[in-house]
């Protein structure tokens, strides 16, 4: 379960570039990304937060039942915690994270819908 930002209107809301979860930057700082903190290392690091998250996203999904939801599956977030996710996130994860993913053999899918297959 992710932290649900208190205000939907807040322009500060940020979306994780990797898992697209939307949180308040304060929450990113305190607890990091609930899904991919291991890679992103955002907790307590404003610099990392600004590098790994963005305010430039479009569409908000509230994932209530991640396992059963087709929307979550389509967004590839069904294994992630419940919470608010962005439909589309502009930008790519920092290169070091991308390299780390590559080294682990994980395919990186940018969330800007640039490569749909």
């Amino acid at each position: 379960m992710a932290t649900i930002p208190p205000q939907a209107k807040s322009k500060q809301l940020r979306a994780c570039l990797l898992c697209s979860i939307i949180q308040h930057p304060m929450d990113f700082r305190k607890i990091g990304c609930p899904n991919c903190e291991e890679l992103m290392q955002m907790k307590g690091s404003p610099d990392r937060i600004s590098a790994c998250t963005t305010t430039y996203f479009d569409g908000i999904i509230s994932v209530i039942d991640a396992e059963a939801s087709w929307v979550a599956r389509w967004q590839r977030t069904s294994k992630y915690v419940r919470g608010m996710y962005a439909v589309r996130v502009k930008g790519r994860i920092p290169e070091d994270v991308e390299a780390e993913l590559e080294s682990r053999g994980i395919k990186y899918r940018p969330r800007d819908q640039s490569d749909q297959d």
């Binding site: 479009d58 569409g59 908000i60 999904i61 509230s62 994932v63 209530i64 039942d65 059963a68 939801s69 087709w70 929307v71 979550a72 439909v87």
Partner: peptide, 11 residues
């Protein structure tokens, strides 16, 4: 609630 998700698009 028995809904699974809800979303919105800016467009």
């Amino acid at each position: 609630l028995s809904i699974l998700s809800a979303f919105q698009r800016d467009s």
